[in-house]
């Protein structure tokens, strides 16, 4: 019975059929029955309120505008569309961009509702035409470049000191940025007037601020609160190091061979052993002092010059297969041995 009730739908056939049943069973007047039948259908007791829930949702078709990206013309001014740095917005960018995790057999997610595209910084505000136009408008504030400074060499020669600072501009209640105080001073060491000793001392004083591959000394100061103070400070540091490098202290005379910045063959044990070897070879018994060893003229020893350069390059350029091979060749020449056999 309940199934019947649930599936019951008022229809013309059913009403007719029911009407007939009622007509057979009824004892009341037929006219009143007919009247009721037209006005309202048979009411079913719907305890669980199933009928209300199952009501179909009405699809409302609203008038949606096409995407802004689709409506853009090709010759629009992109600088107006995207004037400044901004998080990615799919409707403003008329590009078929895709980014993100690629499920197997599918394309990467498209640009709409794509968090991946929003996460990464974009440079859509820095397109070449925009930069060009901005530079054009800035030109009116610039002065002309000096004609004599026409090459990098000329600039380096006349302005050897390079001071690097950063300015920050932001839209926040404070216009100050603490990073603006940092001052970096860069100078080529070769532009300073230093002799051999002073140069070595200067390099030792500045420590790892000197890069031997580029010959640049970089001094950075950020300890003072203001930029001007930091600038004064780096200038002071450079001046102090320069003058200190020229000073020769008493204790610098104690410098030993181990403290040397490069390998000088004449001062080293290698020369001593060669001289000793040469004396022994000629059966001379002589005890030389340190200075005599140092000033011993090696040109009397045949092939010693080549040996000297081979040892120096082995020590100064670092040990590699090539330097060791050269050393071997030089030693063979010095000792009068045959060349290396080639098989």
């Amino acid at each position: 019975m309940s199934i019947f009730i649930r599936n019951y739908k008022p229809g013309p056939l059913a009403t007719l059929y029911k009407a007939n049943i009622w007509r057979l069973n009824s004892t009341t007047a037929e006219s009143s029955v007919k009247k009721d039948e037209d006005e309202e259908e048979f009411r079913v007791l719907d305890i669980l309120k199933k009928r209300d829930k199952q009501q179909k949702r009405i699809v409302r078709r609203t008038d949606i505008q096409p995407d802004r990206a689709d409506r853009m013309t090709e010759n629009q001014n992109w600088g107006n569309v995207w004037p400044g740095p901004k998080t990615f917005h799919p409707s403003s960018v008329p590009l078929p961009l895709r980014q993100g995790y690629v499920p197997a057999g599918q394309a990467p997610p498209a640009k709409k509702a794509n968090a991946e595209l929003m996460k990464i910084p974009n440079f859509l505000h820095l397109t070449p035409p925009v930069i060009k136009s901005q530079c054009e408008s800035l030109k009116q504030f610039c002065t002309e470049w000096p004609t004599l400074l026409n090459s990098e060499e000329a600039i380096e020669k006349h302005y050897p000191v390079e001071v690097i600072t950063s300015d920050y501009c932001h839209a926040s209640p404070s216009i100050r940025n603490p990073l603006a105080r940092v001052v970096t001073l860069r100078i080529k060491l070769s532009t300073l007037d230093l002799d051999k000793h002073a140069r070595d001392k200067f390099i030792r004083l500045v420590g790892d601020r000197y890069d031997s591959s580029t010959d640049l000394v970089t001094i950075t100061a950020d300890r003072c609160p203001m930029r001007a103070q930091n600038l004064d400070y780096v200038n002071y540091l450079l001046t102090a190091c320069y003058h200190e490098a020229w000073n020769v202290e008493e204790w610098e005379k104690d410098k030993t061979e181990d403290d040397m910045e490069y390998y000088n063959w004449d001062n080293n044990a290698s020369k001593k052993s060669v001289v000793n070897w040469y004396l022994a070879k000629r059966n001379e018994q002589r005890d030389l002092t340190e200075d005599e060893y140092r000033s011993y003229d090696i040109s009397v020893i045949p092939n010693a010059e080549g040996y000297k350069s081979a040892v120096s390059s082995l020590m100064n350029d670092g040990e590699s297969e090539e330097t060791v091979n050269n050393y071997g060749k030089a030693v063979r020449k010095l000792l009068g041995l045959p060349e290396k056999m080639v098989v």
């Binding site: 040996y307 297969e321 091979n325 030693v331």
Partner: peptide, 24 residues
């Protein structure tokens, strides 16, 4: 780190043996 003689002999050993014939 290296199999070359100067590295393995250290400065002291190199100076002790110098001049020597390295044979690879």
């Amino acid at each position: 780190e290296s199999y070359l003689p100067r590295y393995l002999l250290y400065k002291k050993g190199f100076e002790h043996l110098d001049p020597f014939v390295p044979i690879q």
